[in-house]
């Protein structure tokens, strides 16, 4: 949770431009969004890239496991579990929900 502070300061300096950016952990369950960027070190970005969580990807938050458990995201059909601190480093913007058929 100490990471949160780092994230906030990082966000202020790196991209002041993004208006609607918010951490994925703050999304409501079932709310569709798009990844804007990963606010964190290269190592974290690389790990998330490996799982397919990268800028431009559509994500839907499926829920949060109880007891300070991880945040569940569906990222273009891949389900990932991210610790809360890490999920707060995934900066997303809300998008309009699209019906069933989705093409990438």
């Amino acid at each position: 949770m100490q990471r949160r502070h780092r994230h906030h300061s990082g966000r202020a300096t790196v991209t002041p431009a993004v208006q609607d950016g918010m951490p994925a952990s703050a999304l409501k369950d079932g709310e569709p969004a798009r990844v804007v960027r990963i606010a964190g070190g290269e190592r974290l970005a690389a790990r998330l890239h490996n799982l397919g969580v990268l800028p431009g990807k559509r994500v839907v938050k499926l829920g949060t496991m109880p007891g300070r458990g991880p945040v569940m995201l569906d990222c273009d059909g891949v389900r990932v579990a991210l610790g809360r601190g890490i999920a707060s480093h995934v900066i997303v913007e809300r998008v309009e929900p699209v019906p069933e058929e989705e093409t990438v």
């Binding site: 799982l51 991880p70 389900r79 990932v80 579990a81 991210l82 610790g83 890490i86």
Partner: peptide, 12 residues
């Protein structure tokens, strides 16, 4: 000690 957070793929 710092406990690293989870980054895990849930396979189908």
């Amino acid at each position: 000690d710092f406990l690293p957070e989870m980054v895990l793929e849930i396979p189908a």
